[in-house]
Amino acid sequence: MCFDRTFPPSFVTEIARSLDHGGAGQLWVIEDCFFTSGPSLAAAALSVTERLTVGIGILPAVVRTAAVTAMEIATLYGLGPGRVLPGIGHGVQPWMGQMGVRPASPVTALEEVMVAVTRLLAGEEVTSHGHYVQLDAVQLDQPPADPPPLLAGVRGPRSLAMAGRAAGGLVLAEPAGASYVRWSLEQAGRSADDFHVAVFGVVCVAKERSEAYRTMAPWLGRQLDHPTPSLTTLPFYDDLAARYASKGIDGLATVPPEWWIEMAPVGTMDDAAAHLRSLEDAGVRSVGLYPIPDVDAARAQVADVLELAAR
């Protein structure tokens, strides 16, 4: 399950305990500027659980120095050995500009950070004189004994190619279907066999497909207003866009079930399970399911996430 950026920080321990006791594998905490801090939420979740893995999606590369990012990850790993999946990405560039840290080349900045953090987590002494990472004989005092894969939260072809060189895997933002996963791996030049792929999806399960589709149609419309490769790589994207252009939200509420199954865990419980199976067949190892961004609604949706986790 994903912990929405709008949730109050205190809610993270309740959700983490519920997932841990119920048998879910992971909780993904979201760091978006200027909402809540990913490492703080992750520390809280790790401290109240015994088996739950906590993913961080994502730490913006240039907000912290590479050394501090490595310290954060190593500290979290010390709190929950083997239970941390850290993601680093570009961050939203206008937000970076608001803080005065927007890089001239986001891809170069992220690659330098990924390389430096990976080496620091491996226990190396690192000296770097790059465009964005400046380190002079820096070495962590308590690096992880078995460092986690460092995942790159990216989308575009150039960034995915960089991830293939410098990262241990990917975090793919929603909507992420199997076709998008395969395309992303192709752009990265990597195989899912040795590259940890995590994806996010927005979950909406109902007894009747039509109810779930009506609920999620406005969300899909917002995605189509600003399409990214997660949509444009769909085999039916042109037909989907044409339907939206001609029929609007009503057209999205009546798309074929197989389209929704490809795009997201939306529909019946069987439909959501079919979506997850298709992701696993494409090589996905981790899935974070976004609930409705309301505390009471999310609390109720924990049962759906646990049922899917137990399938």
Rank of each mutant, 00 (worst) to 15 (best):
K247W: 10
Q223A: 07
A253C: 14
I249E: 00
T254S: 14
R222S: 14
S230K: 00
H226I: 14
P256R: 02
D238M: 01
H226A: 12
A253R: 08
Y213L: 06
A264D: 14
A212W: 06
T232F: 09
T233L: 05
M216Y: 01
V255L: 14
P227M: 06
P256M: 06
K247H: 13
P229V: 05
V266E: 09
Y244F: 14
E211F: 01
P256K: 02
M263G: 08
H226G: 08
G221A: 04
T232H: 00
I249K: 07
R222I: 11
W260Y: 15
A217S: 08
W219T: 07
R214V: 09
M216I: 04
D238K: 04
G221P: 09
D250Y: 01
P227I: 11
P257I: 09
S246Y: 01
D225E: 12
R243L: 06
T215Y: 01
D225A: 11
F236M: 11
W219I: 05
A264Y: 10
S246V: 14
M216W: 02
D225W: 04
E258D: 15
A241Q: 09
S210M: 09
K247V: 15
V266D: 10
L240I: 12
L231W: 01
E262S: 08
Y237V: 03
L224P: 10
P265R: 00
S210C: 09
L234D: 13
M216D: 05
L220D: 00
P227W: 00
L252C: 11
M263L: 15
E258Q: 14
P257W: 01
A241I: 07
F236W: 12
W219S: 04
P235K: 03
R243E: 11
T228A: 11
F236A: 11
T228Y: 10
V266L: 09
A242I: 05
L224Y: 03
H226R: 10
D238E: 12
G221E: 07
Q223F: 06
L231G: 04
K247N: 13
G221V: 07
D250M: 07
D238I: 03
T215Q: 06
R209P: 15
W260V: 15
I261A: 12
R209F: 08
A242F: 00
Y237H: 06
E262C: 11
V266R: 00
P218R: 01
E262M: 08
Y237Q: 01
W260F: 14
I261L: 10
S230C: 14
D225Y: 05
P257D: 11
T254K: 11
